[in-house]
Amino acid sequence: MQAKLIKHINALLPSDSSINDAIATALDISYDAAHRRTSGKSKLSLEESVQLASYFNCSLDVLKEDGLNNIVAMRKTQQIKTPTDLEHYFNSSSISVASLTSSKDVTLYYSAKDIPIFHTLAGNLLTRFKIYVWLRLLSSSEKRISFEAYKIPLSVIEAAKKLGDLYKGIPKTEIWDTTTFNSTLKQILFYYQAGMLSIETATSLCNHLSELLQSISTEVSKKDSDLKIYHNELLLMNNTVLIDTPYKKAFYVPFTFLSYFETSDTKTCEQAHLYIKEQLQQSKFLNTAGEREQHLFFKKIQDKIDALVQLISASDVLGFE
């Protein structure tokens, strides 16, 4: 394991560079201490191995011994319990996304079981509602308080909007079904029926969803759009994300609502990329499907939004208060 890592790092260095000097610099140790590690006389600790992998920007999959090909190194994003945790999540995600926007030939693939989070981060009423829902679902300590009375720090809203704005600049390929809006629609209905959302706010949220849907529909109809949407009726989407760049791939698997397991394991990312490409081949590419196909797809989602508005309105009329 140690020999494989040293060999991999050595292959990354210029031909006239010293592996001992490089290891000494990366670990902040003496030349002799580095030599003992490169020669195998001293063992690298797990912490040192991780530090070297990070310093030389190589995946931890190089540490695996033969016969351990089914074991993948994963990193778990921070668990979210409070508004502060959520703000940190938005800010750290913005740093990651910003690094992508400066790169060429980058594509983000999103298997959209729900509305991709980035589309809901415009800093408006819908953004505030999604934050309200996420924090209530992620923390049992959240008190039973209505959405209208719930105070979300302005810094959290601003961090969310910054992330949403950055996402607009990335070429993205999303796989949708007509059920992609269902989760958000159910959340609106649930909190309305629980008495934690007024009829005016619930209706306004539905209007925001209609505006978002129209905006996405318009974007898809444009030539050379950064947003590509595929319709797959059979694939069970799960909000997985794959980031593909010429120099690196990263694969994100949902852990909780907003937390992910992340890996840059080369073999795993290649397998995920191949799987996504196969799904795209079995999906309908809405951007080139024609006006009629696009209209039918987005109308099915709009019909669900309209049905929820009618249900909310009817329940208010039929109330016995």
Rank of each mutant, 00 (worst) to 15 (best):
T180H: 12
T203V: 10
W176E: 04
Q193A: 05
L166T: 01
K186H: 13
E174K: 01
L212A: 08
E174D: 04
T178P: 02
L189E: 13
E211I: 11
L205A: 05
K162S: 14
K162F: 06
F181P: 04
E211T: 13
T203F: 06
T203G: 11
F181Y: 15
D177N: 12
G164W: 05
K168H: 12
K186Q: 13
Q193F: 02
Y192R: 07
T178Q: 12
Q193W: 01
L209G: 03
I199E: 04
L209F: 12
C206D: 05
K186T: 12
N182H: 14
L205C: 09
K186R: 14
H208D: 15
L197C: 04
N182I: 10
T203Q: 11
L166H: 01
M196R: 09
M196L: 11
S210L: 15
L213I: 10
L209I: 09
L197Q: 01
W176Y: 15
A202D: 00
K162C: 09
S204L: 15
I175F: 02
I170T: 03
F181R: 04
I199Q: 03
E174A: 08
L185F: 11
H208E: 12
Y191P: 01
E211Q: 12
L185I: 13
L205S: 08
K162H: 10
I170M: 06
A202T: 01
E211K: 15
Y167L: 06
A202V: 01
L185K: 04
E174M: 13
T201E: 05
L185M: 11
A194R: 14
T203C: 07
L205T: 08
T203S: 15
C206P: 08
L189Y: 10
T201Q: 07
Y167V: 03
Q193Y: 02
I175V: 13
A202W: 00
I175W: 00
I170E: 01
L166I: 02
K168C: 10
L212M: 15
F190G: 03
Q187I: 02
K186P: 05
K162I: 13
A202N: 02
K186E: 14
T179H: 11
L205M: 12
I199K: 02
I175N: 01
L189C: 06
N182P: 03
S204F: 14
I188D: 03
D177K: 12
E211A: 15
E200P: 00
K168P: 02
S198I: 00
G164H: 07
K162R: 11
Y191G: 01
L205F: 07
D177R: 13
W176C: 02
G195C: 03
K168G: 14
I188S: 04
L212D: 05
C206V: 08
K186S: 10
L163T: 03
Q193S: 08
T178D: 15
Y191N: 04
T179Q: 13
I188P: 07
H208N: 15
Q193C: 02
L209S: 04
I188Q: 05
H208K: 14
T178G: 07
G164F: 09
L189Q: 14
T184R: 07
L209Y: 06
L213H: 05
L213W: 07
T173N: 08
Y167Q: 07
S204Y: 11
